[in-house]
């Protein structure tokens, strides 16, 4: 079976600064893959390159179609939801409008309404704040909002850029439980960028280590978890 997402020789740059130097990786349908690496390794840049937010070069296939030249909008419409670095809240709109925007490309009104309730079920605090300006939410609440908004797309693949950032440990636990449910019950594939390697490796089945724009190691998440040398030298715990 071909993987859901296949990336070959991915290069990306910001203007004249080259950041990615030929990444190769793949993600199985219904799989959970994590990209790990230190600050400035290029994880965020990889996610941005995947969904066409920056200039990129290389082969990217999603669900059998090349998306290396597709626009961000089209990639999203194919079912790729991105929870971006910095959350990307629409600060001047209400919480509920932010969530509705997650489903703006969908037409099935009834299902959208049901999904809204589902997101409120996952994150009750968002329901309490539904008509509040989203810019006034706390950092952690905005992180929940970003994930809720991504769910509203009913994505096939979610790109998550440090979803645990700024959340209390207990909330992180809950969040990863939710992500696990999504993956197991609804078959959503996840590409997870995390600083928190422990939780990421617990959820993931496959992991890549990124260093200065290159993949330096890849393998089953279980193996990395148990490989003391890699943990020491790359993950620092």
């Amino acid at each position: 079976m071909t993987p859901l997402l296949q990336v070959r020789d991915l290069h990306a740059s910001y203007g004249s600064t080259r950041v990615l130097h030929g990444l190769d990786f793949a993600l199985e349908e219904k799989g959970v893959t994590t990209l790990l690496g230190g600050n400035g390794a290029g994880k965020t840049t990889t996610l941005r390159a995947l969904c066409g937010m920056i200039e990129r070069r290389g082969e990217i296939t999603f669900a059998g179609r090349s998306i290396a030249r597709a626009s961000t909008e089209d990639i999203v419409r194919m079912g790729v939801a991105h929870v971006p670095d910095g959350r990307g809240t629409f600060v001047r709109l209400t919480v509920e409008e932010n969530l509705e925007l997650g489903a703006i490309t969908r037409r099935d009104r009834r299902a959208i309404a049901a999904d809204l309730e589902r997101v409120y079920g996952y994150f009750p605090i968002l329901q309490k704040r539904r008509s509040q300006q989203a810019g006034t939410l706390s950092g952690g609440e905005q992180q929940m909002l970003a994930i809720g908004r991504a769910l509203m797309l009913r994505p096939r693949l979610m790109l998550l850029d440090e979803p645990s950032f700024g959340l209390a440990p207990r909330v992180v636990q809950e969040l990863f439980a939710i992500l696990s449910t999504l993956n197991k019950d609804e078959g959503v594939s996840l590409l997870l960028v995390e600083q928190n390697a422990t939780v990421a490796l617990d959820l993931a089945d496959h992991a890549y280590l990124v260093e200065t724009g290159r993949i330096v190691f890849s393998g089953a998440a279980r193996d990395i978890r148990q490989n003391e040398k890699i943990r020491r030298s790359y993950l620092g715990y």
Binding site: M53, E73, V91, R149
Partner: peptide
Amino acid sequence: NDPVSARLVGIR
């Protein structure tokens, strides 16, 4: 409000 995020939810 935020063109980048708007693209990320699929708005043209």
